[in-house]
Design a binder for these strands. Structure first.
Lengths: 139, 139
DNA sequence: TTTATTGCAAAAGATTTGCAACAGT
DNA sequence: ACTGTTGCAAATCTTTTGCAATAAA
């Protein structure tokens, strides 16, 4: 069930235990982990993995376009393994939970040419902010 | 010409030289500065201002809803003084320039109820990514 | 064997904090 | 005067880097 690993092997990515574990951690749960959370989960499987390697590997997956960096208001970036399927994010302002969503309209089409200031616009990224059911209930 | 300062005074915000200078710096240019850039500009006007005070003040303006924090991929957050007028951002992937834009459709309406996962969705924030004319030209 | 990857530890960058001195109201 | 704000310096958190040891191909 590891699409990501297969794709990486197919691209001739040099495989090591550390890289495999990082890829597995990301691919396993479709949530958006911070580097620190990836390290924690990776360490559970491979105790000798180092923080620097986690950062190296995440950076590489981002360069390869297999993982997307998500900047939120919190200090740490989150890593989204769902780079192959276009989607947007729904973010809870209170607890920071992120869910993937798929809006009906293409946001790119909502930005008229005369508003593009000569930019070559490549992508649009939407973050919906609000309260998840638990936080809204005052959990 | 300082809307922001007037609004703050109107809200009974305790005014100090430091706070005034930070508000003036933000209000003056409608670009999106980092805390460090705000400090530099503030220092030019008031040499004895400290970094901590700039952070304190920015944090307060954010709490008051007068300034919006913008998280980009870069490490440092940027501060957007244009909180009163709804708008979205156009970001250059290469040099980090940000411009305010006003798309034609309300992005909120593009997220159907069945995709909201029970969230109370309060706002939608769109970042258009691309290359500004200079970076596209290979400047 | 060859070359890229790893781990360590230190460095760097951004932001926060504790606390005594200080300045608005 | 009272209370909130400031400056300083140290602390914290996240991420990056240099380099020798190591492991994949």
């Amino acid at each position: 069930m590891s699409d990501l690993l297969d794709r990486l092997r197919g691209r001739g990515w040099r495989m090591t235990a550390q890289r495999r574990v990082v890829a597995e951690v990301l691919d396993g749960e479709h949530i958006h982990l911070t580097a620190d959370e990836v390290l924690a989960r990776a360490t559970a499987r491979l105790p000798e993995i180092s923080r620097a390697t986690v950062y190296n590997t995440l950076g590489e997956l981002v360069s390869l376009g297999e993982v997307v960096e998500v900047a939120t208001d919190a200090r740490a970036k989150r890593y989204d393994p769902n780079a192959h399927r276009p989607h947007q994010h729904l973010l809870c302002s209170t607890c920071g939970t992120i869910r993937d969503v798929h809006p009906t309209d293409d946001p790119l089409s909502a930005l008229p040419t005369h508003e593009r200031f000569g930019f070559t616009v490549l992508a649009a990224e939407v973050t919906y902010r609000g309260l998840c059911p638990e936080c809204a209930a005052g959990a």
